[in-house]
Amino acid sequence: MTGFRKLRAVALDCDGVLVDDTYLAMIAGFVTGHGGGYDAAAERDVIGLRDIVVAEKITRLCRLGQPPEKTLEQLWAARREYLAEHPIRVAEGARDCLEALAKLPVRLVCYGGRTREHTFDRYLGDFVDLLDPEVPYVSINEHRPGVDHIARRVLGVAFDEIVFVDDVSRVAEDARAHGAGFIGFPSSPAHARQREFMASCGVRHLPASLAELTPELLRTVDEELATSTHWPR
Rank of each mutant, 00 (worst) to 15 (best):
G202C: 01
Y38I: 12
T59C: 07
A78Y: 10
S228I: 09
G125L: 14
Q66F: 00
R60H: 03
D39V: 11
F127I: 13
I140D: 06
I47L: 13
L130P: 11
F120W: 14
L218T: 00
I88T: 15
L24M: 14
V53E: 03
R176C: 09
A9S: 05
A211H: 12
M26T: 05
G112P: 15
A42G: 08
H34Q: 12
L155D: 07
Y82E: 13
L72H: 11
V154Y: 01
E134D: 13
E92C: 11
R144Y: 02
T59M: 06
A226T: 01
S200P: 01
E92M: 12
D13W: 08
V138S: 04
L104V: 04
R79M: 07
A102N: 12
L210P: 08
K103A: 15
G65Y: 05
N141V: 06
D21G: 14
A9Q: 05
D20E: 11
L24K: 14
A41D: 12
R122H: 13
R95V: 12
V53P: 02
I58F: 02
A9N: 04
E43F: 05
L49V: 00
A180Q: 10
L83I: 12
H205R: 12
Y111V: 07
C110N: 06
L131V: 09
L49A: 00
V157H: 08
D39G: 15
P105H: 01
Q74I: 01
V147T: 12
V128A: 14
P68Q: 00
L49F: 02
L217I: 04
V171D: 04
E73D: 15
V46I: 13
E224Y: 09
E73F: 07
T115A: 15
F4K: 02
D129C: 14
V17K: 02
R114M: 15
V53I: 05
I47N: 06
H230K: 05
H230N: 06
H191D: 01
V106A: 04
D126E: 15
G65M: 07
S187C: 14
L108A: 11
G48L: 07
G37W: 07
N141W: 09
G48W: 04
E117N: 15
Y23R: 08
M198G: 02
L12H: 08
E43C: 09
A211V: 14
D222R: 05
A41F: 08
K6W: 09
W231T: 06
V163D: 01
G125E: 09
G156I: 08
V109H: 07
E212P: 12
R60A: 10
R63L: 04
S169Q: 04
E69V: 07
R79Y: 04
H230D: 06
V165R: 03
G3R: 01
E173M: 08
E173G: 04
A91N: 00
E134K: 13
L75F: 06
E223R: 13
P207M: 12
G48V: 08
G48S: 08
E85Y: 03
L75P: 10
P68M: 00
A40I: 13
I88N: 13
F30G: 08
F164S: 02
